[in-house]
Simulated scan of single mutants.
Amino acid sequence: MKGLTTGKLADAAGVHLETVRYYERIGLMPEPGRTGGGYRSYGTEHVRRLSFIRRARELGFSIDEIRTLLAMTQPGHASCADARALTMTHLDDVRAKISDLLKLERILAATVEMCSGDVTPACPVLDMLASDAGF
């Protein structure tokens, strides 16, 4: 799979063309070779790397975390213990977000339950939003 254009690379990895350009601009993707006419020319290694980045983003890893994970894929730098530690930290963050979202869901559901939906000046939803009380 040599000589892919940017569009073909994007299709092969399941991302948008602009995503490829962005990842190149921020240094997540290496500069590709060029054709005689000056066009970018990507290979299989680019597809693999871009697919890795896409999967990591789908799992919610930050750009900096992905940089770290990519560094771990380099020969002599692979460390399952380091990848596990980074992933455990990320998992803790995901669990905290889930907990926060569940709390928000309970608050919103309770507030909606109190709301009659009638045309009235008293509205529990608006009152809750206007209140200084924390969650």
Rank of each mutant, 00 (worst) to 15 (best):
K2N: 15
G3F: 04
T5M: 07
T5Q: 11
T5N: 08
G7I: 08
K8I: 14
L9I: 07
A12H: 00
A13M: 12
V15M: 01
T19S: 14
T19K: 09
V20W: 06
R21T: 14
R21K: 12
E24S: 15
E24P: 09
R25V: 08
I26S: 02
P30T: 07
E31I: 13
R34Y: 06
R34I: 10
T35F: 04
T35A: 02
T35E: 04
G38K: 03
R40D: 07
S41F: 00
Y42P: 01
T44A: 13
V47R: 00
V47Q: 00
S51W: 03
S51I: 08
F52K: 07
R54I: 03
R55D: 15
A56P: 04
F61G: 01
S62D: 08
S62W: 09
I63G: 03
D64Y: 08
I66E: 04
I66A: 03
R67G: 07
L69G: 00
A71F: 14
M72P: 05
Q74T: 15
P75Y: 13
G76E: 11
C80E: 02
R84Q: 07
T87M: 09
T89V: 11
T89E: 13
T89Q: 13
R95T: 06
A96I: 06
K97D: 08
I98G: 05
S99A: 12
L101H: 00
L102S: 11
K103M: 02
L104K: 01
E105I: 01
E105F: 02
E105S: 01
R106I: 07
R106T: 11
I107Y: 03
A109I: 09
A109F: 06
A109K: 05
A110Q: 09
T111R: 01
V112G: 00
E113Y: 08
M114Q: 15
S116K: 14
G117A: 10
D118L: 10
V119T: 12
T120Y: 08
P121E: 14
C123S: 00
V125D: 04
M128H: 12
A130F: 01
G134K: 10
F135S: 03
